[in-house]
């Protein structure tokens, strides 16, 4: 099953159980239905399903207005860069609403445009920045288990959050992994348990982590594989224990942000762990990131393996 179909089936499963839910956004119940992401949701939603005008600032404010009126809603958005127009509400409006402990749910569900070639304006793979600007809850997901848990537990829940899949992964087959352990709030997932090093993946970089894990396995190095699915600070005790066992850390972060969750995580690790090796794979040295180009994080896996072994 393609990943987009898998997410669509999860959305349907939850939305059909809800009463008085408003789902809205551009193109959600017409045309391509956001490349299939929202296809059929209008048929099973007993509340309102609204194809909206192109008014992202207002559409963001509407979700908060609904929250104030105790009405839950989901705002689906084709591209996360559209949400730049709603930042006033993400910061100013939510700063008021968060004081009153709302009982309604408001979820913004944008697709993170990380597929590349869109050009300087649309290829905004910067989920970190949206969350950090007002300390917002945000969750990314990449595979069968984390997608199921995060959508099931956060799509409709009192409060506000942004949850976002990767456009690049939507077109692929669904990644299916066994899980060793995961956080009860779904902020991190531990897939493989190893003894020699820990590969910790941020944003949408788990597929790179899987490739690296397999390469280490081929040379009999036992790696742990984890993903961090949140963009806010969280209780790192479990990960600190894990790293104090393996003593070696490889971070992979494919975000274009300069305000990355992986940097904040690393700060915590420096405070609490004495590690033998730390390797960070991110876009820091990437050139031409604002030109139309593929958006893959370029990793020289052999060089990483050599660096670790040395």
């Amino acid at each position: 099953m393609k990943y987009v179909q898998y997410i669509n089936s999860l959305l349907k499963n939850i939305i059909q159980k809800e009463k008085d839910l408003i789902i809205y956004g551009q193109n959600i119940n017409a045309g391509s239905c956001i490349s299939g992401l929202t296809r059929g949701l209008g048929d099973i939603n007993s509340g309102f399903t609204i194809n909206t005008p192109n008014s992202e600032n207002t559409l963001t404010g509407i979700g908060f207005g609904l929250m104030l009126n105790s009405t839950s809603s989901i705002f689906f958005m084709k591209q996360m860069d559209f949400l730049l127009l709603g930042i006033d509400h993400l910061v100013n409006t939510f700063n008021i609403i968060r004081q009153s402990m709302p009982t309604a749910s408001f979820t913004i569900f944008p697709v993170n445009v990380d597929s590349g070639f869109e050009g300087p304006q649309s290829a905004l793979n910067n989920f970190n920045d949206f969350c950090s600007i007002a300390d917002l809850d945000g969750y990314s997901f990449t595979n069968k288990i984390d997608t199921k848990e995060i959508i099931s537990n956060y799509l409709i829940r009192p409060g506000f959050r942004i949850i976002s899949p990767s456009q690049r992964l939507l077109r692929n087959d669904t990644i299916n992994l066994d899980v060793f352990y995961y956080d009860k709030e779904f902020k991190y997932f531990h897939y493989m348990k190893g003894d020699d090093l820990s590969i910790v993946c941020f944003n949408y970089s788990l597929p790179y982590g899987i490739s690296l894990y397999k390469r280490f396995k081929n040379i009999q190095i036992s790696a742990s594989l984890l993903s961090i699915n949140t963009f806010s600070l969280f209780d790192c005790k479990y990960l600190i224990n894990e790293l104090n066992q393996t003593k070696n850390l490889i971070i992979i972060d494919d975000s274009k942000s300069t305000n990355k969750m992986s940097d904040k995580f690393l700060n915590q690790i420096y405070k609490h762990c004495i590690l033998e090796k730390i390797i960070v794979l991110d876009r820091q040295d990437e050139k031409n990131r604002f030109f139309p180009r593929h958006d893959q994080l370029e990793i020289d896996y052999n060089s990483v393996l050599n660096k670790f072994i040395k």
């Binding site: 609904l66 009126n69 809603s73 509400h89 100013n92």
Partner: peptide, 19 residues
């Protein structure tokens, strides 16, 4: 914030319609 309350009012009114 100038103009910020207009869309919040719109959402609040949509909630009235739902109810």
């Amino acid at each position: 914030i100038l103009g910020n309350n207009i869309s919040v009012a719109t959402g609040y009114a949509l909630g009235n319609k739902m109810k």
